[in-house]
Amino acid sequence: MSAPFAAKRLGKELQKISNSLPPGIELVSADNFEEWLVDIRVLDDNPLYRNEIYRLRFRFSSTYPIEPPEVVFVKLPDRPIPIHPHIYSNGIICLDLLGHQGWSPVQNVESVCMSLQSMLTGNTKNERPPGDEEFVRGNRLRPRDIEFYYHDNDV
């Protein structure tokens, strides 16, 4: 029963976002109800992200939208990983909205993209999170299983 629930909800979302999406967000592929790819770009003139497009990968579990989707940046030749104190260089995002505690079933793909957009827009620090290298080297966990310590709530 859970699986169709997620599929139906995603079907509704797809229906909506294929009609209209906010500026700077573009659906790349949504061939199934398990993995979607979305391109986002920052709208203002932030020099850190100017003229760049970033690719996001959403992975939905069968319990979506009760459980959060797994959202990471994907590195491609023309799609870098944005530099941000909450984004590791392997694309993993440390954002409470995407964690178990911060997630709410009323969120959706569109709202997550917009949150990430504003997260990038508001950033001025040209740095990776502390301990980025060790984390990238040592992490074998899926993003959903990582217990982030939200050390910095004002970014």
């Binding site: 139906k8 909800r9 509704k12 979302e13 009760i66 079933p105 009323v106």
Partner: peptide, 10 residues
């Protein structure tokens, strides 16, 4: 929109 459940979107 006001008659749509924010969770299941129907």
């Amino acid at each position: 929109e006001t008659l749509i459940c924010p969770i299941c979107r129907t």
